[in-house]
């Protein structure tokens, strides 16, 4: 009998990242975009207490220095107190600047006129008020807003359009959530933030994985296969639950519009971004 090397296991995309290489790359990205291209040197970001904004704060500090990073804690009256504590742990670790701006009055001021608004609408109002604050603080501080959305939530449409996705720069938008966790551990983000269940914290006891109906570990690998061009049957054949594959497919295919700018009626042969084409950094 000859030895048989068995290499018949289905191949699943490996989503590991090299922490030092990736951190150096994203640091250079932020420096080039903020300092070289826009001739400024400050960044402002919302620090939620979650891992994504913590990673962005760490990266901005590497690129710009702690004194040039303005973190904003933007609690609403129902926000978890733990979120504030976890955000503070990031500020303490980095020594960056930090300010608290309570958004309750702004959110409730509007919602008092819309008392029947459900949780989804209320969550979107909170996200949009946070963005309003971020851009206004940007103007005040002369600091560029930096976004924190990751690739998984972008692909699943799990964000508020023209809120979480609106800052002009985003270092994490091409990283799946599980890759953000790996990068966070390399950067030295406090372990409590990396290990806790991710949550939008728009209502009590909310978790991302509860909202989405799938774990990030599974969603990321299914999304990676879908983006590589595999159909649902081939993905299920690699050992994934057909129910989960269908769930991810539905979210992916139902949210392409959220990953684009508004649809403009094209009326001429000089329509912007259709015929008149210039790159964003031109």
């Amino acid at each position: 009998m000859l030895d048989v090397v068995d290499a018949t296991e289905p191949r699943i995309p490996a989503l590991g990242v090299d922490g030092p290489l990736l951190a150096q790359w994203l640091e250079a990205f932020l420096h080039d975009e903020i300092v070289v291209r826009r001739n400024t040197y400050r960044a402002v970001l919302g620090l939620s207490g979650g891992v994504d904004s913590a990673v962005v704060a760490f990266l901005c500090t590497r690129a710009l220095g702690a004194e040039n990073v303005h973190a904003l804690r933007l609690p609403y009256r129902t926000s978890s107190p733990d979120s504030l504590v976890d955000a503070q742990a990031v500020v303490d670790a980095l020594g960056c600047r930090c300010r608290d701006i309570d958004i309750t009055a702004a959110v409730d001021g509007y919602l008092s006129m819309e008392p029947e608004a459900d949780q989804r609408r209320r969550g979107n109002v909170m996200a949009r008020v946070r963005m309003l604050v971020l851009f206004d603080q940007s103007a005040k501080l002369g600091a560029l807003p930096v976004g924190t959305g990751n690739k998984t939530e972008r692909l699943m449409g799990y964000f508020t359009w023209h809120a979480d996705d609106s800052p002009p720069l985003n270092p994490l938008g091409d990283l799946f959530k599980t890759q953000v966790w790996e990068l966070a551990r390399y950067l030295g983000v406090p372990e409590r933030l990396v290990a806790k269940a991710p949550s939008a914290d728009l209502q009590a006891d909310q978790t991302d994985e509860g909202d989405l109906g799938i774990t990030y570990a599974q969603a990321d690998r299914i999304l990676a296969l879908m983006l590589a061009g595999y159909n649902d049957a081939k993905i299920a054949a690699r050992g994934f639950e057909p129910r989960e594959v269908a769930l991810v497919r539905e979210r992916l295919d139902g949210t392409h519009w959220k990953r684009h700018l508004p649809t403009t009626a094209m009326l001429s042969n000089t329509a912007i971004n259709e015929f008149y084409l210039r790159p964003v950094d031109f």
């Binding site: 490996a14 989503l15 590991g16 990242v17 090299d18 290489l21 790359w25």
Partner: peptide
């Protein structure tokens, strides 16, 4: 344009 950060040490 650089891409692919899975392998150690080099794009």
């Amino acid at each position: 344009p650089g891409r692919g950060f899975a392998a150690p040490g080099e794009l």
